[in-house]
Amino acid sequence: MNSFVYDVLRVLRNRGVLLVMLLTTLLSFVALTIFVAVARPLSAFQVNADQTIVVLIMGMIYAFFVPILGIQSGYSTYARDRATGVLESVMVRPVTRERIILSRYLAVVIASALAIAVALGLLDLISVFETGYALPTLQLVGLFLGLLVESVAFAGLLFLLAHLLRSPGAIMGSAVVVFVLIDIVWFFLLLFVGVFFGGLSTTSGLSRVVGLEYVDPSGFPLLVMAFVQGGLFGGLIQPPGGLGSIGISVPFLVVAGLFWSIVPFLLALWLARTRD
């Protein structure tokens, strides 16, 4: 079997990766059921608005769990193999260190893309089942790209940690700390900053929140969704000067997406070339 295909399948067969995707889909289903049960009798939303809210809720759930997907796939594909010495059985083959790390990173990217695509496809089916409507394609594509960047960024951080720490326990422990800081603590920090700098209704407060979201890879899907939905939080918050005035624009999103997809990995690649 081709070595690269083997690496991709290894990620997809990983029980941790499967568990995360299953759990995320299950939670999405529960959240969607609750949403439909609460919102429908109130007739609070029109169909389009309904769908936007559905994507937002699902996006937030996915954005919360996808880092675990990235951590698990990065750990099982590269970090654990490097820390336990399993990678040496490959390094002795006629292949460069750069090729090994690049091939495994691409395997993570492809496996993450497949896993997220399948999960979003299921989400779309759940939406049809619960609300009778398919989700808007553009919003799903935006969510897909945002989640892929998020997953890959966390996988890249794991690749990097594998070159800074020696034991699997230390790597996984640090990954959990990073996850809690970035995914949970950071969320409360940006809410605090937003309120402290004039609330979420002012350009000043919103631009600071958006700035902090750019610094946080788990905030990236929410920024992409804000862009495709035309406003923050499912379009409910519209900045006075438009999204561009608070920094949500194509160039910024592209740069941030590329940064989070590539920079942690490039640092890991540099360390792989220069250090044992």
Binding site: M1, Y6, V86, V90
Partner: peptide, 30 residues
Amino acid sequence: ASTLGWVPEFPNFEPQAGALDLLQYFAGYH
């Protein structure tokens, strides 16, 4: 590396892989 072989003191291989699958995986690099 194409002409060398190595038996380490404490061999360490991917524990979940089948023996034949893993050998074929290594063979892919050659």
